[in-house]
């Protein structure tokens, strides 16, 4: 198991190098210029432009700039935002809990609904539930996220007035930021109604963000279950006189989980990408919105640092998934 872990860890190195390079290159291949963007409507004089270029180091060759960035990264220094002058690192960790909270809720929602739905669809193959689920999964998977988000906002916030349109909590609540997770902080604050407000704000963004993972997990669970259900050991389990719930929910699902966990791991990347859009629509103050804003401002350090951190995060999650995979699949664990 340890060797398995270390070998997985080793594959980090080239990926990390690649990600550093790509995050550096990505923002620079976009047309536009951070200095012009910062200057805004006022414009800048050529002298001032040259001065700023020198100040930010844009006058030096790209390779030198990259080297600076790279050595900085190795020392844990991601630079400062051009706009706020605050370290990228600090900004990231101020905003990250919001994204983490949203993504966690979304993935929990997707797993909690997707797994049983897939199992039931597989055990009732071809029946009404199966068909309904598979068609909705197809729709959910192919639906444009922003359109779906707007639809939900119109119905639940606009027509029914059940949920708020944006933000993480009503402005009338104010309490100290302890964990960065609104659900926990609102509970800790002890203010009545704060928790409820936080939940209300989370519902729509979570649903929107969970939609694609939910569709993928349900479909993947169904197909994995269908494959497993025709295995000999399922017949053995039934021949023991076990109840269908135990045969399907334990003997079959445990095996079907092996491919499903991999898919859930892959969804984390998709989830962060989805978070960018979702956060922008719901004005959710997380890293998704932060990065989109920074791209528009051509805030190079934020974009490249943010991308790098997100990529590392995805890599770490994938590593965890690999370990989990080893845990549920005894054939790997014992190697």
């Amino acid at each position: 198991m340890l060797r398995y872990f270390l070998s997985r860890l080793l594959t980090f190195v080239p990926t990390f190098l690649g990600v550093t390079l790509i995050s550096f290159a990505f923002i620079r291949v976009l047309p536009g210029d951070p200095i012009i963007a910062m200057a805004g409507e006022r414009g800048v004089t050529p002298e001032r432009y040259a001065e700023l270029q020198e100040q930010f180091g844009f006058d030096r060759p790209l390779i030198v700039q990259f080297w600076d960035y790279f050595t900085g990264v190795l020392q844990g220094d991601l630079g400062q935002s051009f706009v706020t002058r605050k370290p990228v690192w600090d900004e990231f960790f101020t905003l990250f809990p919001a994204t983490l909270e949203l993504s966690t809720c979304a993935i929990i929602l997707a797993v909690v609904l997707g797994l049983p739905a897939g199992v039931i669809a597989a055990t009732h193959r071809g029946k009404l539930f199966d068909r309904l689920l598979m068609s909705s999964a197809l729709v959910g998977y192919s639906m444009p996220i922003f359109w779906w988000a707007l639809l939900l906002i119109i119905v639940f916030s606009g027509n029914l007035g059940w949920t708020p349109v944006s933000g993480r909590i009503d402005l009338l609540y104010y309490f100290p930021n302890v964990t960065g997770f609104m659900l926990i902080d609102s509970l800790l604050s002890g203010q009545s109604g704060a928790f409820g407000s936080a939940v209300k704000h989370l519902i729509l963004p979570s649903i929107v963000l969970a939609t694609i993972p939910l569709a993928v997990i349900a479909r993947q669970t169904r197909s994995a279950m269908l494959e497993v259900l025709s295995e000999d050991y399922i017949r053995t389990a039934r021949a023991k006189g076990l109840a269908p719930a135990r045969v399907n929910g334990l003997h079959a699902l445990r095996n079907a989980m092996i491919p499903v966990v991999t898919v859930i791991g892959l969804m984390v990347g998709t989830l962060l990408a989805g978070a960018i859009l979702t956060e922008t629509i719901f004005s959710w103050p997380g890293i998704g919105k932060w990065m989109v804003d920074s791209i528009f401002r051509r805030d190079y350090p934020v974009v490249q640092g943010g991308l790098l951190l997100v990529a590392v995060m995805v890599m770490v999650v994938n590593l965890i998934v690999d370990l989990l995979y080893g845990l549920i699949n005894p054939k790997i664990r014992k190697r």
Binding site: D232, Y233, R235, T236, H251, I328, K331
Partner: peptide, 12 residues
């Protein structure tokens, strides 16, 4: 059954 290897659940 005929196939003992596949008749036992690999996860347990």
């Amino acid at each position: 059954f005929q196939e003992p290897m596949s008749s036992l659940n690999p996860c347990f």
